[in-house]
C-alpha cells in the first residue's frame, strides 16, 4: 500500500474509497436544515425591518439612509453582545447559513475572533486577529466594489 502512493492503482483505490465514504457518511437532514436556515435568517430580517420602522416612527426627521445606519448598528451591537454572552454560537448551531449570512453573522465572526485571541493581549491578540474570519469579506468587498465603481464611472463617461 505504501509503494507509489500516487500511482494509477492508488488513484483508482482512492476514488473508490472516496465514493464509499461519501455513501456511508451520515448526511445532515437537508430539508430540516434548510427550513431552520430559512426561519432564522428570515426572522433576523423581520427584526431588522421592525427596528427600522420603529426608528423611523420615533424619529420622523431622520433620512432613510440614517435609519438604515442606525438599524445596522443596533443589529451589529446586539450580535456582538450575544457573542460575548455565548448565545450566538448556540443559535448558529441550528441556524447555519441563517445565522452567518445576515450582518449579525459578520459581527459574530469579528467579535468571536476578537474574544478568542484576548489571551494574547489586546494588541497582538485581539487587534491583530479581529479580521481573521471576516477578512475575506472586507477585502473582497472593497476590491470588487472599487471595480464596480470604476466600471460605472467609465460607462458614465461614455454615455455622457
Amino acid at each position: 500500500m505504501a509503494a507509489g502512493w500516487k500511482s494509477e492503482s492508488a488513484i483508482r483505490r482512492n476514488a473508490r474509497y472516496s465514493s464509499y465514504v461519501e455513501a456511508i457518511s451520515p448526511k445532515s437532514g437537508t430539508l430540516k436544515s434548510l427550513l431552520k436556515a430559512f426561519a432564522i435568517g428570515g426572522l433576523t430580517c423581520v427584526i431588522s425591518e421592525l427596528l427600522g420602522d420603529g426608528i423611523a416612527l420615533a424619529f420622523p426627521d431622520l433620512s432613510t439612509e440614517l435609519v438604515g445606519a442606525y438599524t445596522s448598528m443596533i443589529l451589529v451591537t446586539v450580535a456582538v453582545l450575544f457573542t460575548g454572552f455565548g448565545f450566538y454560537d448556540v443559535i448558529a448551531r441550528h441556524g447555519g447559513a441563517g445565522s452567518f449570512l445576515p450582518i449579525t453573522g459578520f459581527a459574530n465572526a469579528m467579535s468571536s475572533a476578537a474574544l478568542e485571541y484576548k489571551s494574547e493581549g489586546l494588541i497582538f491578540g485581539t487587534s491583530v486577529k479581529m479580521f481573521n474570519v471576516v477578512g475575506p469579506v472586507v477585502v473582497n468587498g472593497i476590491v470588487w466594489a472599487t471595480v464596480a465603481g470604476i466600471i460605472r464611472y467609465i460607462i458614465m463617461l461614455i454615455t455622457l
Partner: peptide, 9 residues
C-alpha cells in the same frame, strides 16, 4: 431573507 439563507445553506 429566508430564501437567501436557505440558498446559502
Amino acid at each position: 431573507g429566508g430564501i437567501l439563507c436557505a440558498g446559502a445553506q
